[in-house]
Amino acid sequence: MSNHHTRVEPDDFLSPAAPSYVEATSYSDTYDNPFETNIPQRMNSPSIEPDDVPLPGQKPLSPTRSSLPKVSGNIGSNSQSNGGGSSSNNNNLSGNIGSGASLSTGQAMMGSAIDTLDEPVSETLLRDLRNVGAKLQQVLYPKGRKDILKDWDLWGPLLMCLTLSIVLSTRAPTEQKITVFTWIFIIVWLGSAVVTVNAKLLGGRVSFFQSVCVIGYCLFPLVLVSVVSIFVGSLIIRLPLCIVAFGWAAWASLGFLSDSNLANRRALGVYPLFLFYFVIAWMILIS
């Protein structure tokens, strides 16, 4: 060996290479040894043991293994927090929807900023109802925040429509109850859609659902009269009530839709609206 070394020595670049080669082989020996001794240990020992044995060769592995439970622990704790409040999970969703619907209405914006994760369902529903109530109040007494109806929802119109059709169908002759219900339902929804599309076609700048929402909400005075007319039968009281409610509804909806940008065809856009409210007022009057 020494001979060999001295023979090679004159070459300058080989002399450091040779010892390093030797060292490397010795390294690989020390590396290989624990691994090789490990495998037989595994094979010999009961299958449970090797996992717990801290080995030099497995050291890089073992920290990641120990971190795996940590990660899963985190996930577990996450899911546990969800699972613990699984009943409030629904709240979470509905709360978000509710706050989404109440976007852009000045005060309701504050509401969406509040954490709605932990509130009960009743609170969420109540907030939606309050939202509908605020819009109804706006229809009855249009003062101040006109833009509250710009943030549309279809709960109010649905409520109006159902109340109206149920009230009128209960007062209809027995064999016509279903027809009356159907007609009111169709007139309210199709009517408001057709009136809106008509305004759009005439060149007005209205958003479809916003307009449908406004038209539906503006039915509120008529719905009130229809409820009143359950108890008051005489025509002398109901006729002026219906006329007032019709005027009120038409006027309120005009106020909300006034910026629809119809210059010299305004009457063409407004006329169907009047026809719509007039027909419903008439149905209420004769029921």
């Binding site: 008509n198 759009k200 076609l201 005439l202 060149g203 065809r265 305004r266 063409l268």
Partner: peptide, 16 residues
Amino acid sequence: SVEYYAKFFDVDTTQV
């Protein structure tokens, strides 16, 4: 599209 039909509603109140 709805806008396609706008040309059929291209009238004024006085015209109607």
